[in-house]
Design a protein around this nucleic acid. Structure first.
Lengths: 354, 354
DNA sequence: TTGAAAGCGCTAACAT
DNA sequence: ATGTTAGCGCTTTCAA
């Protein structure tokens, strides 16, 4: 890189006729400065078009005003939305965003954490759908500010966390489907190594149990949150001797696959088959029929995570806060009572447990 | 941040029993080093778990191994896809990604460019749908490596650019629709201040002219690449005394709105109304009917941009290369000959011009 | 082939 | 209230 040397703090100092630490003080909002000098510095900054070199500031022990975000996969709408809201919230707080994607390789997480926390960033956000790992423990011991965003509630007991009532959300779907009168409800799971997948499966089982419905293992088919696996799963489910009257897919994308299999077999949704998803990605509302699903408060998650991280940066010793955001059952058009039931099944009493 | 002090190059030097500039040399692949010392250094690095502080390296005149990406809006699938592919390509090249979103505020572009190019990054990528701006000129004069990604072909004449044959893509859609027999084709434009929108509109007009079809201004309705405006536009178009038999929307999201308006009026796509979009975002294939659209080579764009930037970093004085990637007409299910035409209209001769 | 030392631009003591 | 100075961790001369 050739061309005019960037304007440094020293240029400003010379231009304003003050020492360069005074310039630094003005720039960092240090209180006791003669109004005159402050004005002169500000003018010089303006005139010269100076702006701070974040690397240098950070190296010198200041803050970098950069935060690192490590995500698992940028490709799905869920992640993309959360990233966007984090990005927006961070912009308000005048922070830069360094983004790292592990592309699904878990071993890269620790590497990226290491790179980023070596002076590069003031804080770290992790949007990684996995369980506890050693680097979190280290981060915690170093009192390095970080926050975890996950769509379930338990990670470990020392990490600041933003999560959602996703288990409850899955339960809500099931309760809704059961109340509609469905007794054979198929379930397409998420990627089994994700905690979120296990949680939703548990909720599926819990709801069945709570309403005294039998658990038929044949109705549970393992997916991976992707279209293709869900397509296969749906085919298998509908080929069952006693096929389900409703299918609950562990995420919206999987639900879209259910739509397509149904359509290819001349089955109408919801008349012949009810379908519910999870996430409420933007296109779910545009589908036909519009998908009944569980909304994850994606925007709120990003905002909460940002606030939590800012608080932690301000005081790295504060106890780990955990924010749990509510999911919401979004009832649209893809579910109705099963074709052959005379009328919706009304749970007469309280479910057992819950 | 408290806790164990990060391992520095000096620690490694002490551990290996060499001077710390030797460590630096080993780490940077400097050739003339005694194999023994090299081994000892490497072992010490391993034992201590050392990794370089990118800030310091960058400040000291090395490279930061970080590249900056400025995008206009992370929220749309188009951007998200390109960002993902850039991210992936960059990871292969062992670069970090600093992401900046202007959230549509053009005045922020220059600010971000300034921040990022002050030592923070080795190169810059811009995914911003606008025309020439002064900061590009400056970047060019400084020989600061950057590349522009836009979906049209002309930006300025000195910027390395990755673009697509998007004008041709729009023309292809029109030719296809015309060949199908449509004579009244509605057009929902993109956001007027985007060059891409103007280009697609031009292509629309050019195709009409080339095939000797009249240009009815009533058939052109201004949108903004968003669902809502396209919904309004479609309503207006279908309310015309002589409504179009086909609607070409300047992006897929707008085409989805056309679907919905059609559906709400009991019009079947494509039987009663043909619909074409632009972009080929992932969900377009899942819609029913599957959307005929123009595929932008989003992944290839990210890869090409990365390669171009790497080349420019390697030699900042190389002449600006422009890579133009082909779009592709993806014919799916949403278009067919107009209901009342006896048979598809076949352009008998070459169109005039093209 | 290697070590010593001078900065990169900045912040934060330490002076005054 | 302000100037002086010592680093932050590293790369890169410059010597040897």
């Amino acid at each position: 890189m050739i061309g005019p040397r960037p304007v440094t703090i020293k240029d400003v100092a010379r231009e304003a006729g003050v020492s360069y630490s005074t310039v630094s003080r003005v720039l960092n909002g240090y209180p006791h400065i003669h109004p005159d000098k402050r004005r002169r510095v500000l003018e010089a900054v303006d005139r010269l078009g100076y702006s701070v070199n974040l690397q240098a500031r950070s190296l010198a022990g200041g803050h970098s005003q950069v935060i690192g975000l490590i995500v698992h996969d940028l490709g799905n709408p869920y992640t993309a939305q959360v990233v966007q809201s984090i990005d927006e919230a961070l912009a308000h707080a005048e922070y830069e965003l360094v983004l790292h994607t592990t592309h699904g390789h878990h071993h890269k997480e620790a590497v990226y954490v290491d790179i980023l926390t070596r002076g590069m960033v003031d804080g770290l956000m992790m949007l990684i759908p996995l369980g506890p790992t050693p680097y979190l423990q280290q981060l915690h011991e170093r009192r390095f500010p970080y926050v975890i965003i996950c769509d379930h509630q338990q990670y470990d007991d020392f990490s600041p966390t933003v999560s959602t009532t996703s288990r409850q959300g899955a339960y809500d779907v099931m309760r809704y489907l059961i109340a509609l009168g469905h007794r054979r409800i198929g379930f397409i799971t998420g990627r089994p190594d994700f905690i979120s997948a296990a949680e939703r499966l548990e909720a599926y089982k819990a709801a069945l149990a709570a309403y005294g419905l039998p658990l038929d293992p044949a109705l549970i088919y393992t997916g991976d949150y992707q279209y293709r696996a869900a397509y296969t799963a749906t085919t298998a489910l509908l080929d069952l001797p006693q096929p389900p009257t409703a299918i609950f897919a562990a995420n919206d994308l999987s639900a879209f696959a259910v739509y397509d299999v149904a359509r290819s077999r001349g089955l109408r949704v919801p008349d012949d088959l009810s379908v519910a998803g999870f996430d409420d990605v933007p296109q779910s509302a545009y589908m036909h029929p519009a998908l009944t699903t569980v909304r994850q408060p994606l925007l709120a998650m990003g905002e909460a995570a940002t606030r939590l991280l800012m608080d932690t940066i301000a005081d790295p010793n504060r106890p780990a806060e955990r924010i749990v955001l509510p999911t919401e059952l979004i009832i649209r058009e893809s579910c109705q009572p099963p074709a052959h039931s005379e009328r919706p099944f009304k749970p007469s009493a309280q479910p057992k447990g819950e």
